[in-house]
Design a protein around this nucleic acid. Structure first.
Length: 217
DNA sequence: CACCAGGGTGGTT
DNA sequence: AACCACCATGGT
């Protein structure tokens, strides 16, 4: 049992299963990944239900829909003009690739590079799509994980995201739990460590003291 | 009222 | 490479 396996288990015991990512198919996950940017999940969920009601939650229909219709569907998520345009370009991209299934044959690094070419898909969104839509064993690097790493004093000066990713991945044995880990890190961040320099309410501190340093593993 | 939410892009220094 | 403004709605 290594460090981030302990963190996973500790957070799971504290917050319970997060049940990510609720969706019917890969395309719904990808669309949701764009919609949830800088907003609460319930707003993205609302937009997804509107898209479903308008029968637009598939690449072909979304591609050819009126932009005003898409804007109305996604309005609750904020940045609705930007997101509507990006969703339709995304749909066109997916259609051009032959559907979401066609991308599944690519390697993780190839698929990540491809996803990053899509406007509106940055590093974190690409990671989330890889993990939740394509079941790839990816450590999603988000601000909560960076904060958590800082609190666990696992950071070096000027540590890059890729360094952090390798560091976390190197302490994980149960790769199947990466989806839950990402959700739990966010649940933890929202409840405990959003702004304060210490974390009195949860057990991460205890895990930090009992676990061995990552550099030793 | 201010602040945050499951970010990304483009421009400036 | 590090900052910055901007995108914009909904909940607390």
């Amino acid at each position: 049992m290594t460090r981030f396996d302990q963190i996973h288990d500790g957070l799971l015991a504290q917050f319970g299963p997060q049940l990510w990512w609720p969706a019917d198919d890969a395309f719904e996950i990808i669309v949701g990944a764009l919609l949830v940017q800088r907003t609460a999940w319930r707003n993205a969920e609302s937009a997804i239900s509107h898209l479903k009601a308008a029968d637009l939650l598939n690449p072909h229909a979304l591609q050819h829909a009126d932009v005003e219709t898409v804007e109305q569907c996604v309005k609750a998520t904020g940045f609705f003009r930007t997101k509507a345009v990006r969703l339709q370009r995304l749909a066109t991209f997916i259609v051009g690739q032959g559907g979401t299934e066609s991308l599944a044959s690519l390697s993780t690094s190839e698929l990540r590079s491809l996803l990053l070419q899509i406007e509106g898909v940055g590093p974190e969104t690409a990671d989330a799509i890889l993990l939740y839509a394509y079941d790839r064993p990816v450590v999603v690097i988000d601000e909560y994980l960076r904060r958590l790493a800082r609190r666990l004093t696992l950071d070096e000066a000027g540590m890059t995201d890729e360094r952090l990713r390798e560091w976390v991945a190197g302490t994980i044995e149960h790769v199947d739990g990466l989806n839950e880990l990402h959700a739990l890190v966010i649940a933890h961040g929202k409840n405990c460590c959003s702004a304060i320099p210490d974390c009195p309410k949860c057990e991460i501190r205890t895990l930090c003291k009992t676990g061995q340093k990552l550099s030793d593993t």
